[in-house]
Amino acid sequence: MTQNVIDTSKVYFIGAGPGDCELITLKGYRILSQADIVIYAGSLINHDLLQYCKEDAACYDSASLNLEEIIELMKDGISAGKLVVRLQTGDLSLYGSIREQGEELGKLGIGFASVPGVSSFLGAAAQLGVEYTVPEVSQSLIITRMAGRTPTPAGESLEAFAAHQTSMAIFLSVQEIEEVVKRLNEGGYPLDTPVAVIYKATWPDERKVEGTLADIAAKVRDGDIRKTALILVGKFLGEEYHYSKLYDASFSHEYRTA
């Protein structure tokens, strides 16, 4: 029962999910519906989520705010005994800028709690009806992005990751799809590697483009997909697959004898 208690001395960071309003968690919905102040990532989340808020909740779009302004709103809300929610897209642990907000709150003696959400890479797999970890094809998933205005650390280039030829989900890079393809190919993925690009996974206006490294860039341009899309790469998208041992009648394990 203690997990259900809401502490108004903390700021609650909530992962809003990938777009579909029903993909927010029950815990996230419960806290959001009681919030007095909601600071939401307006350029990213589905604004229909705000319908879950109380009629008198004060909602602020953070798209035009800087870090100091966001923290000031949080501080004022906590000082007034209000329940403050920071609503961000997908899951907080991926490209969420949570660390810097938490650090600044800590300087003010304000704690925070995080409520995880469904990431867009999970929503995209669901919409495509695929799994990233196909037995004997791929058992690992690399989540990354191409360097842009935010650089990537040394050793985390697309070329370096492509050498593994495992499943890959590439965020925040579709605007440079030709360069992504070039680097993946140079790193080791052959041009016949399956690729799927999914725009706004789980949203009502979702769009999917599928192909290979050889033709995906042209298909993305033809589809006028320029942002808010994931690039999924790997043989997990292909025709090759193997059944797992988990349900194999000839395979024994702790709960079943062959």
Rank of each mutant, 00 (worst) to 15 (best):
Q175F: 04
Q175W: 07
E176N: 12
E176V: 00
E176L: 02
I177E: 09
E178I: 00
E179A: 09
V180Y: 06
V180D: 12
V181Y: 06
K182M: 11
L184E: 04
L184H: 03
L184D: 02
N185M: 15
N185T: 15
N185K: 14
E186D: 12
E186G: 08
E186T: 10
G187D: 11
G188M: 06
Y189L: 13
Y189R: 11
P190Y: 04
P190G: 12
D192T: 14
D192N: 15
D192V: 05
T193H: 06
T193Q: 09
T193W: 04
P194N: 13
P194T: 08
P194S: 11
A196H: 03
V197T: 04
V197W: 06
V197C: 13
I198R: 10
I198D: 12
I198C: 10
Y199W: 07
K200Y: 02
K200S: 10
A201C: 12
A201I: 11
T202W: 11
T202S: 13
W203K: 06
W203Q: 04
D205S: 13
E206C: 13
E206P: 04
K208A: 11
V209P: 01
E210K: 11
G211I: 05
G211K: 05
G211D: 13
L213T: 07
A214W: 00
I216D: 10
I216S: 06
A218Y: 00
A218R: 03
A218F: 00
K219I: 06
K219Q: 14
K219A: 14
K219R: 15
V220M: 13
V220T: 11
R221N: 15
R221G: 05
R221P: 01
D224N: 13
D224S: 08
I225S: 08
R226W: 04
K227E: 06
K227F: 02
T228A: 09
T228V: 01
L230T: 08
L230C: 07
L230P: 06
L232M: 15
L232P: 05
L232F: 07
V233D: 10
V233P: 09
V233F: 04
G234T: 09
K235T: 14
K235G: 14
F236K: 07
G238V: 10
E239Y: 02
E239M: 08
E239W: 02
E239P: 02
E240Y: 00
E240V: 12
E240F: 00
Y241E: 12
Y241A: 11
Y241S: 15
Y241K: 13
H242L: 04
H242N: 10
S244Y: 05
S244N: 13
S244E: 08
S244P: 06
L246W: 09
L246H: 03
L246P: 00
Y247W: 01
Y247N: 07
D248K: 06
D248Y: 03
D248V: 00
D248H: 12
A249G: 00
A249I: 03
A249W: 05
S250A: 13
S250Q: 12
F251I: 00
S252F: 03
H253K: 12
H253S: 10
